[in-house]
Amino acid sequence: MSAWDAVSAISSMSGAVTVTAALIYTARQVREARRTRAVTALLAIHKAWNASELNRTRRRLKGGEFDDVDQMSIADRNAIGDVLNQAELVGFLVDRRLVSLHDVMSLFPSIPFSYEKALPHIEERRRAFPMYARNVEVLVRRYETQR
């Protein structure tokens, strides 16, 4: 083996090590960017979840104002729908493993209660849309198994 062959082999090996290191670094960066996007989405949903209109709707749910589905106005149906849509997004993120259930349980402790109080509305909507609020339903079951 000549000196040039040895230099060539060392050069090839150092190039392979450099490429491997670059790939590992890139994979970590992509993973971190994905986590950052998911957390950013979760925080945006949390901000919407705590907006005054949704807080008011959740308080009304808690107070039993929406127990009779037949007596609800369109505005009330839409307000409950807004609460459930936010919870549905959270359930979607957990289902796709984009955010942890533990983080969601910390940030959104009232989702199971809101779901239970909105069940009459959900059941009515499922007559037309069978998959309505399914991610929330799965999320609530996961809350129950973690407690």
Rank of each mutant, 00 (worst) to 15 (best):
L98E: 13
V136K: 03
T36S: 15
L54D: 09
A21Q: 10
L43P: 05
Y25L: 13
A41K: 13
G81K: 06
L89Q: 14
S14T: 10
S114V: 05
A33M: 04
A33G: 13
K47C: 06
I45H: 06
T18C: 12
R60D: 09
A16Q: 09
V99T: 01
R96D: 12
F113K: 08
T40N: 14
L42E: 04
G63H: 10
F66T: 05
L107H: 07
D95M: 04
V138D: 13
K47P: 03
V7H: 14
P130A: 03
R142E: 08
D70A: 15
N78G: 13
R127P: 01
S100K: 05
R35S: 08
S73Q: 06
A21G: 14
M131I: 11
D76R: 06
A27N: 07
V136T: 07
A44R: 15
E53G: 09
A87I: 07
H102N: 14
R142D: 03
D68C: 10
V99M: 03
Y132A: 01
T40F: 14
H102V: 15
V17C: 10
I10Y: 13
E88M: 02
P120M: 03
E137L: 02
M72T: 06
I74P: 09
K117V: 09
L139V: 04
R77C: 05
I45L: 00
L93C: 04
V136I: 08
V7R: 14
A128D: 05
S100Y: 03
L119G: 09
Q29A: 09
R58F: 02
I74V: 13
D70R: 15
L101K: 04
R142A: 06
V39F: 13
L101G: 08
A44F: 11
F66N: 09
A44E: 12
L119M: 08
L43M: 12
V94C: 00
V69I: 14
N78F: 09
W49I: 01
V94I: 02
R34V: 00
H102D: 15
N135I: 03
V7Y: 10
V83K: 01
E123S: 07
I10C: 14
G63D: 03
E137T: 03
A133N: 06
K117G: 07
V7Q: 13
L119S: 06
M105E: 14
V94T: 04
H46T: 03
Q71D: 10
E53F: 12
R59F: 08
E123T: 08
R34G: 10
E88L: 00
A51D: 15
